[in-house]
Computed example of a mutant assay.
Amino acid sequence: MVIAALSTQTWPRPFLKWAGGKGRLLEQYYPYFPKSFDTYYEPFLGGGAIFFHLTGRFRTAVLADINPELVNVYQCVRNQVEDLIALLQEHRQQHSQTHYYAVRSQTELSCSVQRAARLIYLNKTCYNGLYRENSKGHFNVPMGRYKKPAICDPDLLRSAALALQSAHIRQASFDFVLQRATSRYDLVYFDPPYYPISATSNFTGYSRYGFTTADQEQLSQVFATLAERGVQVMLSNSDCPFIRDLYAGFNIHTIQATRAINSKACRRGKITELLITSY
């Protein structure tokens, strides 16, 4: 793959808006990153803020998500970034309410790079940058109210493409890491849909599959199995008794965060969440 030269020095960072993205928490996370590791695993990829932040500190990365459209986006950024940029520039020129809903209704695109451009365009122009699917796997978020949405940032996409050259990207459930991560030279970071601490926070619609209490319990067992092998494991989740009990045998750190998505502005604001480490 040929990537055009960056017009400015751009450090890789997330190119998608993502509910629960960790970009604003990196300063608090910094003391808890392990000093050394060779392979980095991220089974709930989302916006990839931790992956991009740690770029340069590992030899290879294995990135995964259960959402096939999200996985396709990352693969296209890595392999076809210039084609992707060209399509996004077309979306930027055509952007309007009519165009948004016409693109949102496209559910049968066969070309992978067209599908990737569609997701990025919708992500940049939808309400609150919220990714949500219905039971059929169709994106169903209404258009946001942005005067000049940043639909295409060529330098940002090219820097992400360079960072992704060392990454293996696959569609998989989080437990695939049990087949791959085996030693203290591995770092696994889990950022699952958070356990709901109220009825209004019960959002797990990143994909059609949802994320249940049983999934949270299975994830804690995967965490414990990896830790027993000596794998370095990190996990983010809600600050609540259920999660504290699941990970009672590990190091639990309290993080100051901000709840950014709620239908009522008065319910957005400061909140604590947890960062759990096995080391």
Rank of each mutant, 00 (worst) to 15 (best):
2 V>K: 15
4 A>L: 15
6 L>F: 04
7 S>P: 01
9 Q>L: 12
11 W>S: 13
12 P>Y: 13
16 L>Y: 05
17 K>V: 06
18 W>D: 11
25 L>C: 07
26 L>F: 04
30 Y>C: 14
40 Y>W: 04
43 P>R: 00
47 G>F: 04
47 G>I: 02
51 F>L: 04
51 F>G: 01
51 F>P: 05
52 F>N: 01
53 H>Q: 12
53 H>W: 11
56 G>Q: 02
57 R>L: 10
58 F>G: 05
58 F>N: 00
59 R>T: 13
59 R>P: 05
61 A>D: 07
62 V>W: 08
65 D>C: 11
70 L>V: 11
70 L>A: 14
73 V>E: 02
75 Q>I: 14
76 C>L: 11
78 R>F: 02
79 N>K: 09
81 V>D: 01
88 L>P: 03
88 L>V: 01
89 Q>R: 12
90 E>A: 04
90 E>F: 00
91 H>S: 07
97 Q>W: 03
98 T>H: 14
102 A>F: 04
102 A>G: 08
103 V>D: 07
112 S>Q: 14
113 V>D: 04
116 A>C: 03
116 A>V: 01
119 L>M: 15
122 L>M: 12
126 C>G: 10
127 Y>R: 12
127 Y>C: 09
129 G>K: 01
131 Y>T: 06
137 G>E: 11
138 H>Q: 15
138 H>I: 14
139 F>G: 00
141 V>R: 02
157 L>Q: 02
158 R>K: 11
158 R>V: 03
161 A>T: 05
163 A>T: 04
163 A>K: 02
164 L>F: 07
170 R>T: 09
172 A>C: 09
172 A>K: 05
174 F>K: 10
178 L>H: 07
178 L>Y: 04
183 S>H: 09
183 S>K: 11
188 V>S: 01
194 Y>N: 03
195 Y>C: 11
209 Y>Q: 10
213 T>C: 10
219 L>Q: 05
223 F>M: 10
224 A>C: 06
225 T>C: 08
226 L>D: 10
229 R>C: 08
229 R>E: 11
230 G>Y: 10
231 V>Y: 04
241 P>S: 13
242 F>A: 07
246 L>D: 05
249 G>E: 13
253 H>F: 09
254 T>V: 12
256 Q>L: 08
257 A>T: 12
261 I>Y: 06
263 S>E: 05
267 R>D: 12
267 R>F: 14
271 I>D: 00
275 L>I: 10
278 S>G: 11
279 Y>G: 12
